[in-house]
């Protein structure tokens, strides 16, 4: 199998030495949506020794347009993204270790999850999770690369905590965006371009090169490109990456937690503490309120009140058909209980 990486080894900045370094590295990818899939495939084929990919979601038809690791069969059988990605990546490269984790990446568990990782990749679609990545990366002093895309454009920024500005240095609180994948859409080429910049920076770092300190913006449809050197924006008093960091996004919050899912007309609701839920007990309770129900080993799906619930066995629930967080909380309390 020595031929496998021959072309990459002929690329002078990597070479056989860099290739050998890659084999001993562990990359942790947060999110197995469009950016997560694209990064995971490139790094798997590049021969990164260990890849972990975590995602809270399952595969739907609307994912197939750009989430390259998934098939129609995966969507039809409601497979979790984590397990489908793991299977597909292992089939691409059996020489490396691949692990998929079907969980949410969140403050309480982030530090334990990323233990031992050399690099983190942002494959998420929301800033809440990105700020958790940002805090945990700063806490364990591991670099990561932010990537975001929308419509036909994308933005990428590598972050070396304590050395280059972190996300919190640049944005002091969660941005309220006016546009999302839901309202303005996204095309596959924008995903590929954004992920390519992310993976390239990751390969640089893993093979001993310096990553760029420029934030890059590119529009693959409008053929626009911009980059800004942001090294002067490091905040010496940053709550996330300075010497006196308090990692505010790693702090727990009490009560039900909710999250809007980008482009899905969906709210996720979950209890403060995850536990094991009996899906069969739940489905027997729900027989009184709905006759549209489907169940597999990992989740239970049912329709009620013009919305569709998908309940995972750890109690985490997706409510499709609403963007109203308060309404979603009420529905959760009404049909699942909290």
């Amino acid at each position: 199998m020595t031929e496998r990486y021959s072309r990459q080894e002929r690329f002078t900045p990597i070479g056989p030495g860099g290739q050998a370094q890659l084999a001993n590295k562990h990359v942790f990818i947060v999110g197995a949506g469009a950016l997560g899939c694209a990064n995971a495939e490139m790094l798997t084929r590049a021969g990164v020794g260990k890849i972990t990919i975590i995602d809270r979601d399952y595969i739907e038809w609307s994912n197939l347009g750009r989430q390259q690791l998934y098939t129609e069969n995966d969507a039809a059988s409601l497979k979790t993204k984590a397990s489908a990605a793991e299977q597909r990546l292992r089939a691409m490269n059996s020489e490396i270790k691949v692990q998929g984790i079907a969980q949410e990446f969140e403050a309480e568990t982030a530090e334990a999850l990323v233990d031992g990782a050399d690099f983190l990749i942002d494959g998420t679609d929301n800033f809440q999770t990105r700020f958790v990545i940002n805090d945990v990366a700063a806490k364990i002093k591991v670099p990561w690369v932010y990537g975001g895309c929308l419509k036909s454009y994308g933005i990428v920024l590598p972050i070396v905590p304590g050395t280059t500005p972190c996300l919190h240095c640049l944005i002091d609180h969660l941005p309220q965006e006016g546009s999302t994948c839901d309202t303005v859409g996204i095309i596959g080429p924008a995903v590929q371009m954004t992920a390519a910049y992310q993976s390239a920076e990751c390969l640089k770092f893993l093979t001993g090169h310096s990553m760029t300190v420029e934030m890059v913006y590119a529009d693959v449809w409008g053929r626009e490109y911009s980059s800004i050197n942001i090294s002067g924006l490091l905040n010496p008093e940053c709550p996330s990456c300075s010497r006196d960091a308090v990692f505010p996004y790693l702090k727990k919050e009490k009560g039900l937690k909710t999250a809007m899912l980008c482009g899905r007309n969906t709210v996720q609701v979950r209890p403060d503490q995850l536990s094991t839920l009996s899906l069969s007990d739940l489905s027997s309770h729900l027989e009184n309120v709905t006759d549209r129900m489907k169940e597999n080993a990992e989740l239970l799906m049912f329709h009620v009140e013009d919305v569709r619930f998908v309940v995972f066995k750890d109690g985490r629930t997706l409510i499709h058909g609403t963007e109203n967080v308060e309404e979603a909380k009420k529905l959760y309390q009404k049909y699942i209980g909290a």
């Binding site: 949506g33 950016l35 800033f127 975001g148 941005p175 980059s227 980008c262």
Partner: peptide, 10 residues
């Protein structure tokens, strides 16, 4: 002028 704005999607 160079403008780079943060994007949430992915």
């Amino acid at each position: 002028v160079e403008i780079v704005h943060f994007v949430g999607g992915g």
